[in-house]
């Protein structure tokens, strides 16, 4: 199961509809061990839905998703029967999820957030869990904030705690759903730094992001989604420089224009 050639995550013809609205249309994707895949695309392109499907937070209703060779969320495909919760949890146990809104539990300290699932799900003793939790907080640079409650932390710190919480469960795959979109601009860097370190340590990651710089620097593969399809996929260089695809060119141009606009503002004397 751990040999290098089998993908950790495979998506085959994955589709999802909300009512009459087909949000995902036959998405295929393979993610190899230690690969970093960034999903980019305009809002409404289905990239967040795709990522959430990979954790079965959205029930994809066409195709198959396999994690480490195990079918995610469904007991059988035709007819589609939902897997039991314990089965779902077992498949999910190899992935960690990081949300746009952090979703830390406000009634628990940073350490409490990290330890909760270690104690309740993995069955660690309180002291083992705390040792491990502190190590994880140290890894994201927040060892001294272990006893702080989420309300006492900045957005960037909260997101780093959320990353530590997911990492503590020792997932083989980390999913990030726009992890920096809810942050003030000056706090984005510290979170991206942690993610870069993770990538450098060999973590397999799928990241939905608007941070093109991060995607260009860190990703092995960038996939561009539009209208529920992956319309372009390749190495960052191919996607950002050598693309012929008109929708992708337009998307990147919009992105550049917006940044140029900010650049102009900065240079305009007050």
């Amino acid at each position: 199961m751990n040999d290098v050639t089998t993908p950790i995550l495979t998506l085959r013809n994955v589709g999802k509809r909300f009512g009459t609205n087909q949000v995902l249309k036959g998405v295929d994707l393979d993610v190899q061990r230690s690969e970093v895949v960034c999903l980019i695309g305009p809002s409404g392109s289905g990239k967040s839905t795709l990522l959430r499907s990979m954790a079965f937070l959205e029930e994809y209703d066409e195709g198959e998703i396999h994690i480490n060779g195990q079918l995610l969320g469904w007991q059988s495909i035709s007819p589609r029967r939902r897997a039991s919760r314990s089965r779902l949890n077992q498949v999910r146990s190899s992935l960690g999820m990081v949300f746009q809104q952090f979703n830390l539990w406000p009634h628990m300290s940073a350490l409490g957030n990290v330890c909760e699932a270690l104690v309740r799900v993995k069955g660690l003793t309180r002291s083992d869990a705390e040792r491990k939790g502190r190590a994880m907080l140290d890894k994201v640079g927040l060892a001294e904030k272990a006893d702080a409650f989420p309300a006492q932390l900045s957005g960037g710190q909260q997101q780093r705690v959320a990353i530590a919480r997911a990492l503590a469960m020792e997932p083989s795959l980390m999913l990030f759903d726009e992890p920096t979109s809810a942050l003030d601009p000056e706090l984005v860097g510290e979170v991206l730094q942690v993610m870069k370190q993770l990538a450098a340590d060999g973590m397999t990651m799928v990241v939905v992001t608007h941070e093109m710089g991060f995607a260009a620097q860190v990703a092995d593969t960038v996939a561009f989604l539009d209208g529920g399809h992956i319309v372009a996929k390749g190495a960052p260089r191919d996607i950002f420089h050598d693309t012929e695809h008109p929708r992708l060119q337009q998307f990147l141009q919009n992105y550049l224009d917006r940044n140029a606009f900010w650049q102009d503002l900065k240079e305009t004397p007050a």
Binding site: A55, L57, N89, R92, S93, L95, G96, M97, F99, N103, L104, W105, E116, A117, R120, V121, A162, R165, A166, M169
Partner: peptide
């Protein structure tokens, strides 16, 4: 959802 993803 966070709790679900952690297997709770």
């Amino acid at each position: 959802e966070a709790a679900e993803c952690l297997g709770m």
